[in-house]
């Protein structure tokens, strides 16, 4: 284990969230079960009173999880001098490649589900009879599992590090022609694939902006969106994410760093500090239409209609601003190069 202040904070957060996730999971499932049956007035009040403590616990866990996602990378960054061969965060992730890949995929998923749950909870609080009460506690139960797995993963991951081994860093993986982000576009677009990457990036991001804009206008003038429209938004967001990630590795990161043959996003975060903000805005921009879909599916009820419309509108607005700002920042960087 590499013991530094970052490891201690990360381990403490992981242990705390892991310990709290267990009662959270059990209690939320009990509430989900109890709420199904007809209740005496006192039982209902009792469950509602218990739910406040549970919601507070959930808020603590979820806030910690939201904060520790970026902190995960800060901790890995702090290990660079301690691990032989590591020159950026990517090198550190090669210490336990499968575990770090799993955690890196798991964290955005947990972040997405946590964000979705917080929105669902807020939506339910806007109603008079709390029609989403049962649903939100079942959802919380499922999230508590994810939180527990993520916390245990963090504990195992960070206790397993040592300074004895050496790793290969990003140049070995990303600066070779066989890298995954090059092979796929090469096979689809041919040798000149690189010149299509930036137009694809802009086309997809602009399309997403346009769809969110149309949806926003539609909500302004009309009632709730038909489900297919939010589904289309979420699908387009996922496709945009895939294209953007490819474009980031292949074209944007090398351009921003001024290193035309170096295709590493982790290095980009290190050398171009505001690229962290670009990434964060991009993630929020992609998640926003997906949260809109989640709410449109899980939050529909005659009582939530008015509030749901406002929430989805805000999500699209937020998505437009975040995606637009991320794209604008990339464009300014590219123009200044």
């Amino acid at each position: 284990m590499i013991l530094n202040i970052y490891t201690i904070i990360m381990m403490f957060a992981a242990a705390l969230t892991g310990v709290l996730a267990v009662p959270l999971g059990i209690m939320s499932f009990r509430i989900f079960q109890k709420w199904e049956k007809p209740l005496y007035a006192e039982e209902r009040t009792d469950i509602e009173n218990r739910s406040y403590l549970l919601l507070l616990t959930a808020a603590v866990i979820l806030s910690l999880k939201l904060l520790t996602w970026p902190f995960f990378y800060v901790t890995l960054q702090s290990y660079i001098p301690s691990i032989r061969g590591a020159m950026c965060i990517f090198g550190v992730t090669q210490f336990y490649p499968s575990m770090s890949s799993a955690l890196q995929l798991f964290k955005p998923l947990v972040f997405f589900l946590i964000g979705g749950w917080l929105l669902l909870n807020q939506l339910d609080r806007k109603t008079e009879t709390s029609p989403l009460f049962r649903k939100k506690f079942l959802f919380l139960h499922l999230i508590s599992f994810m939180v527990l797995i993520d916390s245990l993963g963090d504990l195992m991951y960070f206790t397993g590090f040592n300074t004895g081994s050496s790793v290969a860093c990003c140049t070995t993986f990303f600066d070779v022609p066989e890298r995954a982000t090059a092979v796929l576009p090469l096979s689809i677009l041919g040798e000149a694939y690189e010149k299509y990457m930036l137009p694809s990036y802009y086309t997809m991001n602009m399309s997403l902006l346009a769809l969110m804009g149309v949806s926003y206008r539609g909500l302004q003038n009309n009632k709730l969106l038909p489900p297919w429209m939010t589904i289309a938004g979420a699908i387009l967001a996922v496709l945009t994410a895939v294209i953007t990630i490819f474009a980031m590795f292949e074209v944007i990161a090398p351009e921003l760093m001024g290193l035309p043959y170096h295709h590493c996003i982790y290095c980009m975060w290190q050398y171009v500090p505001d690229s962290v903000l670009i990434t964060a805005l991009f993630i929020i921009g992609i998640f926003s239409p997906c949260w809109a879909l989640l709410l449109n599916i899980m939050g529909r009820h005659s009582e939530t209609d008015a509030a749901l419309k406002g929430y989805i509108m805000n999500l699209y607005f937020f998505g437009i601003i975040s995606t637009g700002a991320s794209m604008l920042m990339v464009t300014i960087h590219l123009m200044l190069k």
Binding site: A41, T45, E128
Partner: peptide, 23 residues
């Protein structure tokens, strides 16, 4: 501040018996 065991309480014609604690 409390809920009835049975029956309805209406405020301005709206049945508040099923209201959540937050509402």
């Amino acid at each position: 501040m409390d809920r009835p065991s049975r029956g309805g309480i209406f405020m301005k014609g709206k049945d508040i018996t099923g209201f959540s604690d937050t509402a």
